[in-house]
Design a protein around this nucleic acid. Sequence first.
DNA 1: CAAGTGCCTTTATC
DNA 2: AGATAAAGGCACT
Length: 291
Amino acid sequence: MVVLLRLGRGCVFDLGVSLCCGQVFRWELVGDWWWGVVGDGVWRVRQVGDRLEFENVEEERVREYFGLNVDLPRILREIGKDEYARKAVEAFKGLRILRQDPWECLVSYVCATYKGIPAIKKMLFELSRRFGHKIMFENRTFYAFPTAEKLARASMNRLAECGLGYRARYVRETARKVHDEHVNLESLRKAGYDDAQKELLEFPGVGPKVADCVLLFSLEKLEAFPVDVWVRRVILRHYAQHFPDKFINKISEEKSLSNSEYATLSLWGRKYFGKHAGYAQEYMYHYERTR
DNA sequence: CAAGTGCCTTTATC
DNA sequence: AGATAAAGGCACT
């Protein structure tokens, strides 16, 4: 049964951009419907103007998952600190940060290191197909995201077959830690940014960038400001005046950032854009990538 | 079409 | 602390 949700004023939302912008990797567009597996359920969602239609999921879950309960117009005003930020916001107005499952998000971003989005999608698709349980919906086959237990027991070979490369070891070790130590990632939603980040950094394959992505995309830490190559480029091109020349010269030459350089950039983002800095990051990331 | 480059970085080592 | 190297393989040019 298709349920209809009319997006009221103040509830600006763009489903397509939100699913395409590189924060989530397992949604598929079929015709004008988006199909996605969330938890153990297959959702079908489409947007027609200010109407959001969905199937096989309750409205409350939809609101929660797509972040419809946050006051986006207010956040966008708040992060529009300068001309560049306002341009990025204007270009993709309606992009919302989703509230993903923390376990799936953690594995996704461990896999995402030093990879492009198409390759990330492929890895997660293969992981789910091989290790996730099968779900039939509308005569189509879907796979739930594999549990920590399943990945903890996976052989290195079968993980490597998913295209993980050297990440296979990190995924398995991270899965083992979650499973063996009965880690409850959801509980990190109640923790503050610093405490939650500290916990995430304990997982193999998780550095500051991956931790920030998990904090932002699944643990409701909207102040998290992940700095990847694209965001670094944005800073170099548009915000260099906020840093000493020496620092800017240094990070423009290097291929990768040291931990302290990363911390400098990420902390600057949080201070400059405020408590919803993650939204600024996502708009600028997507804006920079699509030029 | 082949070869080169880049990729939402982290870890190990010195 | 800071510098340096190594680590799949896929997608795009």
